[in-house]
Design a protein around this nucleic acid. Structure first.
Ligand SMILES: [Mn+2]
Ligand SMILES: [Mn+2]
Ligand SMILES: [Zn+2]
Ligand SMILES: [Zn+2]
Lengths: 135, 135
DNA sequence: AATATTAATTGTAATCATTACAAATTTAAA
DNA sequence: TTTAAATTTGTAATGATTACAATTAATATT
């Protein structure tokens, strides 16, 4: 498991240090789109010397190397996702959970973006999740 | 023109002060999705006493009353839009311009969001605009 | 292996957008 | 006009992110 992660980092030009490996592993295993604080607070239990700066540095490096994507649903909270395939996010206003969903197709008016080069696409919804609606 | 704006604010339960009217008018006339700084710097020419806090307060009020939407494409820059109909945004990495585009249809896997209540939908693209590609 | 070089991590301070808050001003009510 | 309520303003506080220099770890050279 950890072997795969090292290999994947190497393949993308990232030297797999302990911190980088653990951070990436966390993203792969917990598909909950964590914030820097969440991941720091969880990983510092494993790596007591961990610095929040390292988490920021590592995310910025992962972004440069395009192995993660950034999720900016709320103005004040940045989340990260190891799933770089195109998919949508639903954030529940009540519990704060961020769910993934599959996108089959998006049809837009091509006239406006004719001759534009599209590099990234992001789709997200907000509302109340099933569990929170039950209450 | 300004009459329409006052009426529209009143209709949505907002007392149309000078500041609020000018800010909303700006959003209507300049469809460039301004940041707080942009709008403050432009409007302070007209209203020399204007405070940036007022711009923040006003946007928050407009948000509560649902007459504007917030655009969070970049982590560090919040933009605002007086067009509350569902439409997409394209941000050019090069010049920073934010373009609108029409969305005809979005097809998603309904299984996952079954029984979820969707209140907001946001779609944005990033890349290079036609003008910047020419260079 | 020991030493020198380079890269990664860490802690602290700086930055910047946004909010909190209280004082000043404006508007509406009595 | 006097009083009360709402709005605006300026300044201070907050919080997330970055800058930067020092420390530690990894790699290369002798
Ligand atoms: Mn995701
Ligand atoms: Mn728009
Ligand atoms: Zn929920
Ligand atoms: Zn451009």
């Amino acid at each position: 498991m950890s072997k795969n992660i090292s290999e994947h980092l190497k393949k993308n030009g990232i030297k797999p240090s302990l911190q980088r490996t653990k951070i990436y592993e966390y993203l792969i295993e917990n598909k909950n789109h964590p914030t820097v604080d969440q991941i720091y607070n969880d990983l510092v239990k494993d790596i007591p010397t961990l610095s929040k700066t390292t988490v920021y540095n590592t995310f910025n490096l992962f972004m440069e190397k395009n192995i993660i994507t950034i999720i900016t649903i709320e103005e004040n909270e940045t989340r990260y996702d190891a799933d770089t395939t195109f998919h949508g996010h639903f954030k529940c206003d009540e519990c704060g959970e961020v769910y993934d969903f599959d996108i089959d197709d998006i049809q837009i008016n091509k006239d406006i973006l004719k001759d534009f080069q599209i590099n990234e696409r992001h789709l997200y919804f907000k509302g109340k999740c099933k569990d929170c609606l039950k209450k």
